[in-house]
Nucleic acid binder design. Sequence first.
DNA 1: TGTTAGCACTCACTCAATTGGAGTGCTAAT
DNA 2: ATTAGCACTCCAATTGAGTGAGTGCTAACA
Lengths: 350, 350
Amino acid sequence: MADTELDERKVKILNAIIKNYLETGEPVGSRTISKYTDLNLSSATIRNEMSDLEDLGYIVQPHTSAGRIPSDKGYRFYVNNLIAEKDKEVSDMQEWMIEKTEKMESLLKNVAKTLANNTQYATLVSAPSVVSNKLKFVQLSAVDEHQVLSVVVMDGNIVKNKIINVEKPLDNETMLKLNMLLNTNLNGLTVDQINLALITKLKEQAGIHDEIIAQVLDTVAETITEGDDLQVYTSGATNIFKYPELADSKKASELLDTFEEKQSLMELLSDSTSEGDNTGIQVYIGDESPISTMKDCSIVTATYELGDGVKGTIGIVGPKRMDYENVVDNIKSLKGQLDKLLKQEADRNK
Amino acid sequence: MADTELDERKVKILNAIIKNYLETGEPVGSRTISKYTDLNLSSATIRNEMSDLEDLGYIVQPHTSAGRIPSDKGYRFYVNNLIAEKDKEVSDMQEWMIEKTEKMESLLKNVAKTLANNTQYATLVSAPSVVSNKLKFVQLSAVDEHQVLSVVVMDGNIVKNKIINVEKPLDNETMLKLNMLLNTNLNGLTVDQINLALITKLKEQAGIHDEIIAQVLDTVAETITEGDDLQVYTSGATNIFKYPELADSKKASELLDTFEEKQSLMELLSDSTSEGDNTGIQVYIGDESPISTMKDCSIVTATYELGDGVKGTIGIVGPKRMDYENVVDNIKSLKGQLDKLLKQEADRNK
DNA sequence: TGTTAGCACTCACTCAATTGGAGTGCTAAT
DNA sequence: ATTAGCACTCCAATTGAGTGAGTGCTAACA
């Protein structure tokens, strides 16, 4: 693992520097390291090594005659080592969720919340993208003379509804027929597969009541397609005030803005779904982040799956000196639970 | 309107002080006022008057030999005058909402957003409280063998749904009977009226299938009752960084926490629904606020109605030196539009 | 040749003293 | 009743000395 440019001692020192900095948030000096570590070396020797490490770009000095802090490259090295090594104990998390499957929305809100509580960082969770998700159930019902309620249930019990205004009341028979039509034709299909052609075909089959039904069908299609892009739940955004390096007015304001404007967060999450590595866990450090306002942060994301195809994402945003071990642990465990939960949900529906 | 303790000149000076402070956010001195206003008085005279105003409690000095800033009492005086006088022009707002009635949720989110944009303060909007709201439509449908979807529509097209897990599949006939039972008994009732007694009665009527149906009924009741307390939409929380007196780390963190933890916001809003005055607009200044973390802020709330009984609330939170005129204008206009919109909605459903 | 001790140097940070300016309160004159 | 003038107060910004943590370099050492 160790690059050729780093001998074992340098690695040890680098690790010591980073570990220490993660704890304190202060630049760490040569004397500290010389006492802190088991390799008995004087501060002077450490200084020489640190000088080398700085030349190699793993650590930087905020100013002359200050201690060193890890550079992005340094963090990256640390994280790579960490994730490769560590893969054993999975922290036990609360089991509350198992019972609360009924509503995807509240489940995800809870996930975001507990994760934020556990880690003390800001978290975000995106709802499973509906695009490659299967339709399970469609139903239209007349609420009153001029309004029809359409309810759509997707795999994973994601429920969507929409009220459709109609000119003339639909009689019971038509209603029944429509429901039949929709369910037999749409059930089990993914949103991808429900395209214009299919809709047109349905319209034709609907036959006589063409006008009204066309309108209804359009709206149903809309219901299924729309709005699933904004589903991001965040929590613990204010945790960033706990880290002085992020808490100054300007940075905090920008960051919180980004969190409030969930749109841009989507980019972050969708970005990470594409280039997932084997573990499904992604770490962005500083400038590596796709969002510029987060260039002073680190971001850890994981994607969880539901049935086939990649779906939703969990993310944690914190200072660069975040406790990567703990975070990766937490997020990994959570991802596992979500995967299991949703899979079992899917199985049950078979 | 002018209290006996304030002669006309004092009122003018007080107004000048407050207006100036609203703009600058800096303590305002006697010389500024002497030049700023049309009443030609020397700074010395102003000083005397200011001294009086301070004794009367309308303004305070942050420290000796600084200018004066309005006290809560001063703001209160200003606001009272303002709201009484001003009632003419209602600023024209975007008309986008008219078309978007279908989904209460997105409507309210939009309201919060535009309001935040227009005023540059933090806003919160609570969904119409369902408590005194009428049930319009209930429906159970079998999604698959073990899951039943219950959909409840309330007045104002608030849709709630919940998935109920059942042991044994329910056959079509039972389903139909259940739906009938629910709709005939519950339609038109308010949540208040759906109490334990009624539920028990329903269970009895359900008869044979007692066990399963009891479970379903319980869940439906739960669906109706639950969760409507958390429906608060916020926007523009980060606007507080625009006002230095709120932007320091500690205060900002507390405030944003309060905004994230929507629960406590509910108190604020529900509080204001109770003691609405004639216009339905409430202004809390500083310590008057029911939430302690907001004691450095002012809060303007308005309640909008839907049919009979008080329902939802719109609120704005900003610094004490907020632009009350503009805010009250905005909020009043918005309240009017919401009232109208929801009323017309209600009418159409008659 | 790698390691260490020692020393001079740098730089941020703290604290106190200094200064300038904005603003007040009071008094005496109009 | 109003105003001009002056002494006074207090904040805010500036300066400068002192401190300490940390570095880089050199020379000695094993």
